[in-house]
Simulated scan of single mutants.
Amino acid sequence: MAENRASAYTEGVPCWVDAQLPDTAAGRRFYGELFGWTFEEREAYGGSVVALLEGEPVAALTPKSDGRMPTVWTVYFAAPDLGALAGRIRAGGGQLLGEPRQLGPYGTAALAAGPEGAVFGLWQPGRHAGFGRRHRPGSFGWVQLYTRDTEGANTFYGGLFHAALFGPGARPDFGRAPVGDVFPAEMPPHFLVHFLVEEAATALDAVVRLGGRVQVPPFETSYGKVAVAVDDQGASFAVMER
């Protein structure tokens, strides 16, 4: 099964994304039409619905348990030994945000924050290793860390995942840039999940038609043409055309 491809998701590789939403039924309508997703219920998976592309898992939509929580997309990095990785996060100046959560037979999830406060997830796989589809239209394509301290990010995340994450020979699917390159300088540091699309302009037209909005118009990057959008509930994400 595609969900058992654990070898594709070694430590530090982006392996999963989810959206914390006030209304998952509305999320199904929005993202189902935008990306062609279908959905299945998984009660053991925290009450989430899992989005499928061509029958394979690509994301989850999770109901917010507390209205004070942000409406946001979160990227999860593979953590075969979550406990050891959590120790390195603390040693590097980051923190775990609450206790890890066992999600039935699928795996264990935890939320963490880097020294600047950018939130990301960790995923220790059980039955679910991660994306069954990626790098194709309608699925995960990239995650970008927007930071105010690029050298600090190099040090923290490079040490965390024992890898050179940025620059020549860097790990694929994960980059970083100064906040001010795309967003106003006052924007907090954050991770931005990118979904691959056939045409960015067509995807943005669909976003607006479905009740979302364009936050940042299309711009060119080294990894493709990117635009930032906000869904009809306030969760930001990027679409990427290659």
Score class of each variant (00 low, 15 high):
102 Q>E: 15
168 P>E: 15
29 R>T: 08
123 W>K: 10
238 A>R: 08
235 A>K: 07
176 R>K: 14
57 P>A: 12
39 F>Q: 13
57 P>I: 08
30 F>G: 04
100 P>D: 13
173 D>H: 09
77 F>E: 10
55 G>Q: 09
154 N>C: 03
234 G>F: 00
73 W>L: 07
51 A>P: 04
94 G>E: 10
32 G>M: 05
166 F>L: 07
99 E>R: 15
72 V>C: 03
75 V>I: 05
207 V>N: 11
22 P>E: 14
144 Q>G: 06
114 G>A: 10
75 V>G: 03
208 V>G: 07
192 L>R: 12
51 A>K: 10
191 F>Y: 14
67 G>I: 00
121 G>M: 05
160 L>S: 07
225 K>A: 02
187 M>K: 14
30 F>E: 08
142 W>H: 12
107 G>Y: 10
100 P>A: 05
50 V>M: 09
86 A>K: 13
147 T>N: 12
15 C>I: 01
40 E>D: 12
202 T>V: 04
201 A>M: 03
161 F>P: 06
4 N>S: 13
106 Y>Q: 14
193 V>K: 09
135 H>F: 01
78 A>L: 02
14 P>E: 14
169 G>C: 04
186 E>Q: 14
149 D>W: 03
114 G>M: 05
57 P>V: 07
141 G>V: 02
87 G>E: 15
134 R>S: 13
111 L>I: 00
18 D>K: 13
93 G>I: 01
182 V>Q: 11
240 M>Y: 01
183 F>E: 11
156 F>H: 10
45 Y>L: 06
98 G>M: 08
